[in-house]
Amino acid sequence: MNWKLICKLEEIPQLGSRVVHWPERGKIAVFRTSDDEVFALHDKCPHKGGPLSQGIVHGKRVTCPLHGWNIGLDDGQAVAPDVGGCKKFEVKVENGLVLIAE
């Protein structure tokens, strides 16, 4: 698998995110949890397309800023009773750098 450099880990705030513009794949939200795990989702809530990158991150979930749906960071799926999902991207942290699978 080929990996593409996004940024340094420290450039994403803990319990926060950064938006990545990737011409072929659109907007991707890259999240960092409190214990420095990193996840990437298509920046579009399955409910009404809200920008998940702007939500509050807690545990391994993000709350969409538009209508409060909770989305699992590790699977891109809405937390019950809501139903829906958004695309997940493979990301990893190596030597303090965040990489995304091409």
Binding site: E11, P13, R18, V19, V20, H21, P23, K27, V30, I100
Partner: peptide, 11 residues
């Protein structure tokens, strides 16, 4: 200001 600026990846 960082939170306002998206990261741009090359195609």
């Amino acid at each position: 200001i960082k939170q306002f600026i998206p990261i741009k990846l090359e195609a």
